[in-house]
């Protein structure tokens, strides 16, 4: 699709906080010197190693650190929903770093494609053209939000490598199963493996991203090492973590939360302040790290990415297709 749209970095003046801009640039410079490939991995505590290839990532000027105020690394890596490792926000950090191996890691691409293949994650990073950094808003369906500096590559690059056949309309993503390492899978809190799906045109949208890092470092296990999906215009649960398989299909695939609780969670899961969750309003959100009196900020349509993705949903009833 060749739709010329106004780019997202053309933000209004109100979105820029000069003081924070200053601070984050300092932090970035610090991380640049620290975050050089294997040397950085050697400095990281055990359990934080994932896909180590491709660092340092180049900043994508379309999604710069200066445009948004990133959430502190500590919060991004301590406040996680990753039910494979328990249902409390603190569980993934604790239980995903107890001997769960995320390297080496293989991702299988199969289904309606001309180039089915199995990739080592580091090879995939190289084949996809290396890493770039993008700062995205992250909105959870639970009405909280973060801003995350991801490192990764566009999902469109992986789709191009796979070369989908004309009948391919959807992608199904599958996460890992390791009942020995994953306490949540032993408890059986959800049906595993966790699966998610996208329409092919969603997957090739410029925003859809495969993340292998956060803040210029390999992505921690609790955030979905070594490779996870990031779709910033959708609620966080669409961002399937620790992907082992991507299958191109002709029919809309199942996604775990729609199967577990279809009344509350659907396939599309687009961030939409006008469509409430059955149990709470989605009109506003709590900002992670803002403190007790941080208040709420209004939630933006498609999480502020309407320019990039609005055209995908022309004519679709967003109340019914939640």
């Amino acid at each position: 699709m060749f739709i010329l749209s106004k780019k997202d970095w053309e933000l209004p003046e109100s979105a820029v906080t000069p003081e924070k801009l200053y601070r984050t640039h300092n932090r970035r410079d610090f991380l640049k010197t620290l975050g050089t490939g294997v040397a950085a991995a050697a400095l990281l505590p055990r359990g934080l190693r994932a896909a180590t290839g491709g660092f340092p990532a180049k900043e994508n000027p379309a999604y710069p650190l200066s445009a948004l105020k990133p959430t502190a690394y500590e919060f991004i890596t301590s406040y996680n929903n990753f039910y494979e490792f328990g249902m409390e926000k603190s569980d993934p950090k604790e239980y995903a770093n107890k001997g769960w191996k995320t390297e080496p890691w293989t991702i299988e691409v199969k289904g309606l494609v001309r180039n089915p293949a199995k990739f080592d994650v580091n090879d995939l990073i190289t084949k996809a053209g290396g890493l770039e950094q993008r700062v995205y808003r992250h909105r959870c369906v639970e009405a909280w939000s973060m801003v995350v500096p991801w490192d990764g590559f566009p999902l469109a690059k992986l789709v191009a490598l796979a070369d989908p056949k004309p009948e391919a309309k959807y992608l199904q993503f599958k996460s890992f199963v390791d009942r020995k390492a994953a306490i949540g899978q032993r408890q059986g809190n959800l049906d595993y493996p966790y699966v998610e799906g996208l329409r092919l045109d969603e997957a090739t949208n410029e925003l859809a991203f495969m993340a292998t890092g956060i803040y210029g470092k390999p992505i921690p296990n609790q955030n979905g090492a070594p490779l996870r999906l990031v779709t910033p215009w959708k609620y966080g649960f669409k961002g399937i973590k620790s992907i082992v398989q991507i299958e191109f299909t002709s029919r809309m695939p199942e996604n775990t939360w729609a199967v577990m609780n279809g009344q509350e969670y659907g396939f599309y899961a687009n961030v939409n302040p006008h469509v409430d969750h059955p149990r709470w309003s989605q009109a506003s959100e709590r900002v992670i790290g803002a403190g007790v009196f941080g208040g709420r900020q209004p939630t933006l349509m498609f999480n502020g990415y309407e320019k990039q993705v609005g055209a995908l949903y022309k004519g679709l009833d967003l109340v019914r297709n939640y």
């Binding site: 500590e74 919060f75 301590s78 406040y79 409390e88 926000k89 603190s90 950090k93 909280w144 709590r286 992670i288 790290g289 403190g291 007790v292 941080g294």
Partner: peptide, 13 residues
């Protein structure tokens, strides 16, 4: 200073 709690302290309370 538990970061998981400080991420959204009011929700915890």
């Amino acid at each position: 200073h538990d970061p998981t709690v400080l991420a959204d302290p009011l929700k915890y309370v």
